[in-house]
Design a protein around this nucleic acid. Sequence first.
DNA 1: TGTTGACACATGGTATACCAAATTATGAAA
DNA 2: TTTCATAATTTGGTATACCATGTGTCAACA
Lengths: 236, 236
Amino acid sequence: MAKENALTSLVNEGEIKPSQRRSLSEETADKLRELILLEKLPPGMHIPERDLAEVLGISRTPMREALRILESQGLVDHTPTRRSRVANPSVDELAQSMKVLATLEALAGELACTHASDSQITTIAALNQCMVEKSEVMSSIDFFKTDMNFHTSIVAASGNAALVDTHAKYNARLWRARFLSSRRKLGRATTLQQHQDITTALQDRNVADASRAMRDHIETAIENLFMTRDKQESFE
Amino acid sequence: MAKENALTSLVNEGEIKPSQRRSLSEETADKLRELILLEKLPPGMHIPERDLAEVLGISRTPMREALRILESQGLVDHTPTRRSRVANPSVDELAQSMKVLATLEALAGELACTHASDSQITTIAALNQCMVEKSEVMSSIDFFKTDMNFHTSIVAASGNAALVDTHAKYNARLWRARFLSSRRKLGRATTLQQHQDITTALQDRNVADASRAMRDHIETAIENLFMTRDKQESFE
DNA sequence: TGTTGACACATGGTATACCAAATTATGAAA
DNA sequence: TTTCATAATTTGGTATACCATGTGTCAACA
């Protein structure tokens, strides 16, 4: 059938990587997440677990577990009749998730001020410096990955395991939206300035500034999200 | 489909439950959650999925899914070798989760000020009033359930689906700790005052007050948590 | 021609079987 | 008695089979 052919073609594009300790479910969740973020599995598409498992050469059991993982990250949801489909969040829904993310990161900035070790702050500052120096030569994707790394490092420096965990879930859910947002030309200069503000606040261990700088940074991303919807702009 | 003939409706009336939407996995997760919160399954206990499934009369498949659900709520952990066990969070870990909860609820209060309908605020105020009037006659558990209902209603009034979802997970994770905290005699009067502050702020739709009142309320619960650890006190 | 209802099939939920890894028990050697 | 290698057992991960229900198709009928 046509569906199977379409699915088969996309598995051959990537290479299957065997791994050591990770379970098939987790590997599969990673593969599917990538396929979703690249829109190889487009938003709203139904996922028949039997067929997709067959295409990936696994049984339904780990496929089902992978779908649960993605569901908990908000990348997959269920129809009233339990059929899985790729999440297709509206801009408003993405903005709501980002609003929560902004709050989580503000908390992370606050906690990091008192909890982070000097070496952690040094690492964060180094990531910031790296982005400043190489912003002209980095590709969108590399710039973005460093950006994400910067944020994740701050959350890790908060020393709050629950926060790290929940932040990771929101990050997974919002990865694509943030990437699109960061690709906007206007964004990069603003991003660098805001990162500098965050870094400075952390170095000063100024709780109020760090919290506010983190929140403002994500709020800007929310604005970008709406702007991206309202008008198409040029990308780099 | 909409039309049913007379015979069918007569036969079905009163006999047939419309549709059993709840899966065994979800029911099992609920049962296990209860067992964990009642410490019938004590913290740190290993959970051999085969045996426990047999005890509950189900197969391993839904049991495994139930364990994944509880894991995503933080009520179950995994050892490095993947064996499930009941989570046994330290007071510090619980405090960290509550710190995140405080932030989430502060956001909920903030959003509820601008998003909640008048009737939602009326409902919230009614819950508050109910606790004030009946605090003397309610059992610990009923008082606590109303308390939880009050909080959940505010989060729902925020209109932010992601926030509702994440809050529900933290609530599940912290249910027991919050219950123990709320059982402290000293807590009830403070709780009522703080609930009143929250209610007033919401009725005034005062964003800053609502946010602060929500945060303060949970911060008090964190303090209670540590006090409960440090010295045993009398309970009602 | 449009509606309806029965039947076939698609799909997710559950049970069971099997395997590999990890844990525990065993026993021989020091 | 202690230690360590190894066998026996337990346990979680995966595959497969079966079942219940939802969904679509098409023929019969008004």
